[in-house]
Amino acid sequence: MTDLTRTLQILDRLVAFPTVSRDSNLDLIDWVQDLLQNAGFEVTRIWSPDRTKAGLFAQTGPMVDGGICLSAHTDVVPIDGQIWTRPPFALTDEGTHVFGRGTTDMKGFLASALALAERAGATPLSSPLSLSISYDEEIGCVGIGQMMPELKQVIGKPRIVIVGEPTSMQVATGHKGKAALRVTCHGQAGHSALAPRFVNAIHVAADFVHEIVALQGKLALGPHDEAYSIPYSTVHIGEIHGGRALNIVPESTALDIEFRHLVGTPAHEIQREIEDIAKRVGGAYPSAPAIAVEMRNAYPGLNTDPSLPIVNWADEMAGANGLTKVPFGTEAGFFANLGIPTVVIGPGDMASDGHKPDEALSKAELSACDRMMDNILGALTSKP
C-alpha cells in the first residue's frame, strides 16, 4: 500500500472542519489557501455573493495551456437525524478504513490532491497543475455556478479536468443533468362546510401530480442510455405543502419537483412539458389563479466522448479500472461546458458510504488515488 501518512494528516484536518453546506467554509478555505501558498501555488480566492463562503483556484508550474486541473468541493451533507457510532467531525482510523463525514464525499480526494500539490510545489513542472475548490456543491452545485464567471477567466485551457467524486477509481464519462422547480397550485379559501363552492388547491395539485406520473411514463419510453441503472430521464416530486387547517379550503399548495435528464434530452424540453401540464391542469379551474412554475436551481449533465485519447490517458493514470457513468450529479458539466474534456474519478463508493452515518473510506481506495496523483505528477514533469 502507498504510504498514506501525509494524505491522512491532511484528511484528518479537513474532516475536522464541519463544513456542512448551510454553514461557512471559510476556516477550511483559510487553511487550504495557506497550504497551497506555502507550496508555491498562485491562489485566487473566489467569494460567494454574500462573502460567507469562498472557493479557490490555485495553479503552479509554467503559465501555459495544457496541464491538469483537479476539482473538489469542500462542503458536506448534514448529520442531523443520523445515528453515528463514531465522531462525525474527527477522523477515526480503524486499520483498513477511515471514518468521518466527507471521507468519501469528497474530502478524501481533496486530501490526496493537496498532498500532490505539496509534492508538485517542490518539483519543476513542464506543464501546469491547477486545483479548483468549491463550496455548496451538495445543495445542487450552487457554488461552482456562482464561481464560474471568475473561474473561467483564470482556468486557462487544461488538457483535462478531473472531478474527484467517488467512483471507486473508475473513469466516469457521464451523468445526468438536474433541475429543481417549485410548482404552486392556487385555489380559493373558504369554510370547509361549503367546500364544493371553492377551488381546493390540494385537489388542483392532485390533478397535477397525476399528470406528472404520466409524464414519467412518457420519459421512460423516450431516449435511453444503458450505461445508467435508470437508463432514461426521470421526474420526481419530493415535497408537497398545502393547507392551513382542516376546516379551511386550501388556497395554495406548493410542490417541489426535480427532473434528471440525459444529456441527449435537453432540460428545456422537459421543463416545457411540465409547464404545459401546469397550463392544462390550471385551465380546468378557470376561477383560480394559474399554476406557477418557478425554476429554483439547475446544473448540467456530463457526456464526455469515451473514445477521446485523453479519456484513455485518464484511465491509465487511475490504474486502468475501466469506464463508467454515475447516477449522481457533479460539477463536471460546468467544466465541460467551457470546452474542456472532463471526467469524474475519485476514491470511495457513493452507494455504500455517500451521505450515510459512519461514512467511511477504504485506505486501499485512498492509496489508489495517491498512486493516480503520483502518475499525474510524473506526466506533468515529463517533457512534451
Rank of each mutant, 00 (worst) to 15 (best):
Y299M: 09
Y285P: 05
R272T: 06
A179Y: 00
S252R: 05
T304R: 02
A227R: 12
A227S: 13
P223V: 10
R260Q: 02
I291F: 07
I257Y: 10
E251A: 11
T234W: 05
G243L: 06
A195R: 11
L219A: 07
I212F: 02
K178V: 15
I212N: 00
A180H: 10
E273F: 09
I230N: 05
R280Q: 14
H241G: 02
I257A: 15
K178R: 15
S192W: 03
L215T: 05
V209K: 06
Q216M: 11
Q188W: 02
T184V: 08
I237W: 10
I240W: 00
P300D: 03
Q216P: 07
E273H: 12
K279S: 09
Q170E: 13
H241M: 03
L246G: 14
T304S: 02
I257H: 08
H210L: 13
E226F: 00
G301M: 04
G242N: 11
T184M: 01
A214M: 10
A205I: 03
D225N: 15
A220V: 10
A227P: 03
K178C: 15
D276C: 05
E211F: 07
G177D: 06
S229Q: 08
V171G: 01
V249R: 00
M295W: 07
M295P: 05
N303D: 06
R244V: 11
H191Q: 10
L194C: 15
L255M: 12
V204D: 00
I277Y: 04
I230K: 07
N200W: 02
G187H: 03
S168W: 09
G217P: 08
P223C: 11
A180N: 13
P286H: 11
T173E: 00
Y232G: 02
G222R: 04
G222I: 07
N247A: 13
A205P: 01
R280L: 15
A267H: 08
H236L: 09
A189D: 04
P250L: 12
Q216C: 13
H224E: 14
T234I: 09
P223F: 15
G177F: 05
P289W: 12
T234D: 06
H186P: 04
A172F: 02
A278N: 05
G217R: 14
V281R: 00
S229C: 06
S287K: 15
H186D: 07
A179C: 08
Q188S: 07
V213G: 09
G264T: 12
H175N: 11
S252E: 07
N200A: 03
L215K: 04
I277K: 01
A214T: 13
L246T: 15
K178F: 10
V213I: 15
S287R: 13
A189S: 08
I257E: 09
A179R: 06
S229W: 01
S192I: 06
R244T: 13
K176F: 09
N303F: 01
T253D: 06
E211H: 12
H224I: 12
E226H: 08
K279V: 09
G242S: 13
E239F: 11
E273M: 12
F208R: 00
V209A: 14
R280D: 11
D207P: 00
V235M: 07
I257T: 15
A254R: 14
P300M: 08
M169H: 01
N200P: 05
L181I: 02
V293R: 10
A298G: 02
I202C: 12
G177P: 04
R260I: 01
F208E: 00
F259G: 01
Y299A: 04
N303H: 07
